[in-house]
């Protein structure tokens, strides 16, 4: 990767006054750094306590049956007691997501970089990419199961097919943002096509590439879980099926909680990377 991407961006953000990054605008209000006062933290915690406590109280007062909606305390307990049985599934899900997303994202990125250099080829390929973006890849899982069985292959293929086009379509938007003056600048110093690509085009496209990676990874997570529910003997999606068929709702919601944590973590990771690499764009 271009060394430009490793730029330290020390001043922005640290002051807590920088403009939002193009992605995750909502996140920056949560994570605006040192400028957040103790009072704000107190309020954030209080609101969380009130919401969780209120849910707990409402469920107990209204005597909502456990199999309809378990109180937060029961979910918490289930998370702790089921953890020894859950974590292997968590690892499976994360591995599938990571491998599928890595394959999909790399192919999507390379395809975007190549295709935007040839407008004609881009016109030909774009409809198929849109087809991949708009078709739920989950629909392919039963088909893939017929070919590959109930192992990890169908799930990884589905994840790659779900995340790759997202990365591609957003990266392509980024690569199309050409600034002829900046390319001319690099050329005037004798830059090769490859140097123009690494030193001008990639950094220029980086904000949109980051958006693609974030959206692609979230789509990947959805597809991973869905694929596990449709055709998997393991993984958190499979656990959702298992617990719901046993009507063990606290355990079911414990899995949902884990999935929410994964999703938010992905968001935060890409938000922070994006903040570091794309803060130049205001």
């Amino acid at each position: 990767m271009d060394s430009a991407l490793q730029d330290k961006i020390p001043t922005f953000g640290a002051k807590g006054q920088k403009a939002d990054v193009s992605l995750g605008g909502g996140m920056s209000s949560l994570m605006s750094g040192p400028s957040r006062s103790a009072f704000e933290i107190f309020i954030i915690i209080m609101v969380a306590v009130v919401i969780i406590g209120g849910t707990e109280l409402a469920i107990r007062l209204l005597e909502v049956p456990l199999y309809i909606f378990p109180p937060p305390s029961a979910i918490g307990m289930a998370l702790v007691t089921e953890w020894p049985f859950l974590w292997p599934h968590l690892v499976t899900t994360l591995c599938e997501l990571l491998i599928g997303f890595s394959i999909g994202a790399s192919v999507g990125f390379v395809l975007a970089a190549v295709i935007t250099q040839f407008p004609f080829a881009e016109k030909i390929i774009t409809p198929y990419i849109l087809l991949l973006v708009t078709t739920p890849m989950l629909a392919l899982v039963p088909l893939l199961v017929l070919r590959f069985g109930f192992g990890w292959e169908p799930r990884i293929i589905a994840v790659a097919l779900a995340s790759g086009p997202m990365v591609m379509i957003n990266s392509a938007t980024g690569f199309r943002r050409v600034d002829l003056a900046k390319i001319a600048l690099a050329r005037s110093f004798g830059a090769s096509t490859f140097q123009i690509f690494t030193k001008i085009r990639i950094p220029m496209a980086m904000p949109m590439i980051m958006v693609g990676l974030m959206v692609g990874s979230i789509f990947g997570l959805l597809t991973t879980v869905g694929a596990e529910m449709v055709g998997g003997a393991e993984g958190l999606g499979n656990r959702l099926n298992y617990y719901s068929s046993m009507i063990r709702m606290p355990q079911f919601f414990a899995v949902i909680t884990l999935l929410a944590v994964i999703g938010i973590s992905i968001y935060v990771i890409f938000f922070l990377i994006g903040k570091k690499w794309t803060s130049w764009e205001s």
Binding site: L185, M204, M206, E281
Partner: peptide, 11 residues
């Protein structure tokens, strides 16, 4: 070459 409006790389 020196370009219009400096043409620095913002990143």
């Amino acid at each position: 070459m020196i370009f219009q409006e400096a043409n620095l790389l913002p990143w």
